[in-house]
Design a protein around this nucleic acid. Structure first.
Length: 580
DNA sequence: GCACTCACG
DNA sequence: ACGTACGTGAGTGCG
């Protein structure tokens, strides 16, 4: 497909790693291996735009395919300079990620591994970290030219290597149908960003400050000593050495006492200071990771927050989010949920809409294992965890107790991880024997599932990899390890990856389809976040009903002709919390 | 730069 | 006898 078209490898040099804050320094291009060209642009932004505009004929030509390493970055950069990158996108980072999802995908690693070529480290030009850090703009043109041309050239040289790997691993379809179109979706989503109320968070920060100070005083009073409560080591020493709280676990690999949530919760009755330490930790975490950090991430150009959604990180095929991570905003804890109130629509004419897949991973297991009992339960449309409890405890659906439902929910959850009796017993706080019995009756009821899991592991051992429903692949180097712990780790990965990965494939398709429809219908509403099984939109109020029906349709039907029903729950509100 | 802890799905 | 959950990113402490 690519070889019949004109192609050009292309790279941008900029003043920083955030495409929404950086300024362009130059462009490099390569069409022939071993040969590349560099075009510097002025620091004067008007002049820079004029220079960039001269390349529109190439960059906006849909007949010319673009090759790039993490091309979403360059695409966003170009967007800021008024250029909409067109044509097929061949991303060397993403294609390598599809072939070897557990390895690294940086260009220097790729050229060393596959071309036996050592690239010039960027640190040689701009120095490393600290206050002496330069930007590309401070570096002599001759040096930048060499560096930029090397990037474009080596990216081009990686293409035949990757094409061969992609073809051999039957990954072309996955790339063309999902990952390539997703690049544009994510670029638009990131460019759009999301509005966050800095005022709201700053007010909340003051409240947290008071609470944390109170907890701190209470801890010092009850412990009889001042120490750094944020230091796990000091917490361990105070609790277990000074206050003689009994410690009954293995120490950490570095020889420290472990003081994580599970341990401290179990010890809560042993000393009154323990509960307060847990509270202190909770509020400190909220303050430092979210309440104080998020306002500093508001982009001065846009007044919005532009996370980076990494398309080549999670080995299962999921996205990840960084700078800031908007996929781990609190929701379970009451005080944490408050933070979601800061995620708001762009203005009074908009609302936040959140659309969630309901129990997507369990539905996918039912689908790919073809377990009739599980499929029937989903088709019946009742509370799935309750239906599971009825089956494994052999009671009528209406007689399921809340404890039985809770246990069934945990078992359902554990199954997707391939967890065994030891962990289930720990999770449910029941004996190992009881846990073994529970798992036994679970697999008696869902024998098709058991069969599928055994078969998956068997195939993984034979072929050395597993695949999702859409052909995403993960090599499992350890699956035949002689070390039984290593091997069983790989077995759990073998079971979990097709499930987590198929769910990732599904929502990616939905994102592409929704994005496409919004574009076609020229709507003003925008997709702003993805959180694994949830999509969040900034919706123009007059378009609300239209958006609801598009989202329902595209999320439900992302993968057509499934046996299992797919359920999508939609909520709307004046902030992200209200939308749930 | 690693270890620990903890936020999410 | 022993022992783990699957996938992430970020803040803090500390050597």
């Amino acid at each position: 497909m690519l070889s019949q078209q004109k192609t050009i490898s292309f790279d941008t040099e900029t003043t920083g790693i955030d495409a929404h804050q950086a300024e362009l320094v130059g462009l490099s291009f390569s069409v022939t291996p071993g040969e590349a060209y560099y075009m510097p642009v002025s620091a004067d932004q008007d002049q820079a735009r004029t220079t960039v505009a001269r390349f529109k004929g190439i960059l906006e030509n849909p007949e010319i395919s673009k090759i790039g390493q993490n091309i979403k970055y360059d695409m966003a950069m170009m967007k800021w300079y008024g250029v909409e990158l067109a044509g097929h996108l061949y991303d060397t980072m993403i294609t390598h990620y599809l072939c070897e999802p557990d390895l690294r995908h940086k260009l220097d690693y790729l050229t060393e591994s596959y071309l036996d070529y050592k690239m010039v480290p960027i640190e040689d030009l701009i120095g490393r970290g600290g206050k002496n850090q330069l930007t590309m703009r401070d570096v002599a043109l001759e040096k930048v030219k060499e560096y930029a041309c090397e990037d474009a050239d080596l990216t081009l040289q990686m293409v035949p290597v990757l094409k061969k790997m992609m073809h051999e691993n039957e990954l072309d379809d996955l790339y063309i149908k999902i990952e390539e179109p997703l690049i544009r979706v994510l670029c638009d989503l990131e460019y759009e960003g999301i509005r966050i109320s800095g005022d709201f968070l700053n007010e909340y920060s003051k409240e947290l400050d008071k609470i944390i100070l109170e907890k701190e005083q209470e801890i010092y009073r009850n412990a009889g000593v001042k120490f750094n409560i944020s230091s796990p080591r000091q917490v361990g020493e105070v609790l277990f050495d000074r206050l003689k709280v009994p410690y009954r676990w293995k120490k950490t690999s570095s020889g420290q006492y472990s003081t994580d949530f599970d341990k401290l919760t179990e010890l809560a009755g042993e000393h009154i200071v323990i509960d307060t330490i847990l509270e202190y930790r909770k509020f400190s975490k909220l303050k430092s990771t979210y309440v104080d950090a998020l306002p500093t991430m508001i982009n001065p150009r846009t007044g919005r927050v532009h996370s980076n959604f990494n398309q080549a990180r999670a080995a299962t095929g999921r996205l990840s989010s960084e700078n800031p991570n908007l996929q781990n905003i609190p929701i379970k804890d009451e005080a944490g949920r408050e933070i979601r109130k800061a995620f708001i629509p762009r203005d009074d004419d908009h609302v936040i809409l959140a659309a969630d897949y309901s129990q997507i991973e369990l539905r996918i297991i039912a689908e790919i294992s073809n377990d009739q009992s599980m499929l029937d339960a989903f088709i019946a449309g009742n509370d799935f965890h309750k239906a599971t409890a009825a089956k494994v405890y052999s009671v009528a659906y209406d007689d399921v107790t809340s404890e039985q439902r809770r246990n069934a929910k945990t078992v359902n959850f554990s199954i997707t991880y391939g967890a065994g009796a030891t962990n289930l017993s720990r999770q449910l706080k029941i004996s190992r024997k009881e846990a073994t019995e529970l798992i036994k009756s679970y697999f008696r009821e869902f024998s098709g599932l058991k069969n599928y899991m055994d078969e998956t592991v068997k195939q993984a051992r034979e072929f050395g990899y597993v695949k999702t429903l859409l052909g995403r692949r993960r090599n499992l180097r350890d699956i035949n390890s002689r070390n039984s712990l290593t091997a069983s780790n790989a077995e759990r990965v073998a079971i979990n990856t097709p499930i987590q990965g198929t769910a990732a494939d599904m929502i990616k398709i939905a994102m592409i389809d929704i994005h496409q429809t919004i574009k076609e219908k020229q709507l003003r509403s925008r997709m702003v976040l993805q959180v694994h099984d949830e999509l969040v939109f900034d919706v123009y109020k007059p378009e609300l009903e239209t958006l609801k029906s598009i989202i329902q349709d595209k999320m439900k039907n992302a993968i057509p002709n499934l046996k299992v029903p797919i359920l999508v729950e939609i909520g709307v509100g004046n902030n992200w919390l209200e939308a749930h």
